[in-house]
């Protein structure tokens, strides 16, 4: 039998074609974007306040630190466990407070249901301020006001979360189907009934999703609160660093990773149950 070789493609004409991947306009667009990015990087690299010899010795320094951290010190575990639990508690209670407070804020901050312009503006300002200031800065403030301890942490977590949740829940109120609201209005229901029967059921899935997500984020955030004195594992971390107890530092890092993973697993489970 003959082999399978087919001849070269034939009968296709002899035309040649000049092909370029992008049109002239596309190419110009890409070049100018490239130039802008290059200039930006050039400006940054030439003006940033970095002592370059430190950069070149950095890999060595980091290696050295990692070397000193090994192995994690298991004797630190009895110290770690109570503050780790405190970390979770701060995140949970902070989120709980935020959930309660963010609901009215979301309601007043949603353009379609907010009673008037003033309530809308107030809610929006609260949301923006809360969101733009980091948990740790809130913590700094509340440690100054309330004194050090987990309570400052809880309040900081709550203050940062209110804006986050208020914004997302408010957006879901703005995007909801208006039909059920009209149906209830037509049946003569008051605003209270409209909230419980037409708005709440529609916003519920987003509400849960946002609350769970924020709890997950807050576990991460509450691991550092202690560094400014607001409770949780951060304090232990800071002390271990200041005393150069590197093996304890690495044990703390391992436990932080474990507690964050724990948070992710729990939120994953709850999310699957609820949604």
């Amino acid at each position: 039998m003959s082999s399978l070789t087919s001849g070269p493609l034939k009968d296709l004409g002899k035309e040649t074609y000049h092909w370029q991947r992008y049109t002239f306009k596309q190419r110009m667009g890409r070049y100018s974007a490239f130039v802008v990015v290059a200039l930006l990087l050039y400006w940054t690299l030439s003006t940033v306040d970095v002592f370059w010899p430190w950069v070149w010795s950095a890999p060595e320094e980091i290696n050295d630190m990692l070397y000193r951290m090994m192995p994690p010190n298991p004797r630190a575990i009895p110290e770690i466990i109570p503050v780790l639990i405190e970390t979770i508690n701060i995140a949970t209670i902070g989120t709980l407070f935020a959930v309660i407070i963010s609901l009215p804020i979301a309601y007043f901050g949603a353009r379609n249901v907010s009673p008037n312009k003033i309530t809308l503006a107030i809610a929006r300002v609260i949301i923006v301020a809360s969101r733009s200031i980091n948990t740790l800065i809130w913590a700094l403030l509340f440690v100054a006001i309330l004194g050090p301890g987990p309570m400052a942490g809880v309040v900081a977590i709550a203050f940062r979360s209110i804006g986050f949740m208020g914004k997302l829940i408010g957006e879901s109120i703005e995007e909801m189907d208006w039909g059920p609201v009209e149906a209830l209005q037509a049946s003569g229901s008051g605003q209270g009934h409209i909230v419980t029967y037409a708005i709440t059921p529609q916003v519920m899935p987003t509400f849960w999703a946002v609350a769970i997500l924020r709890w997950d984020i807050n576990i991460r955030e509450s691991t550092v609160l202690g560094m400014v004195g607001a409770g949780g594992i951060g304090m232990l971390f800071q002390v271990a660093i200041d005393l150069f107890r590197w093996n304890t530092v690495s044990m703390v890092l391992v436990s932080i990773i474990l507690v964050v993973l724990f948070g992710e697993v729990v939120t994953g489970m709850v999310r699957r149950k609820l949604i």
Binding site: E221, T223, V224, M227, F237, L253, I256, I257
Partner: peptide, 10 residues
């Protein structure tokens, strides 16, 4: 898992 502030300290 590590918060930027933790990484920052390190």
């Amino acid at each position: 898992s590590l918060h930027p502030v933790v990484l920052g300290v390190l």
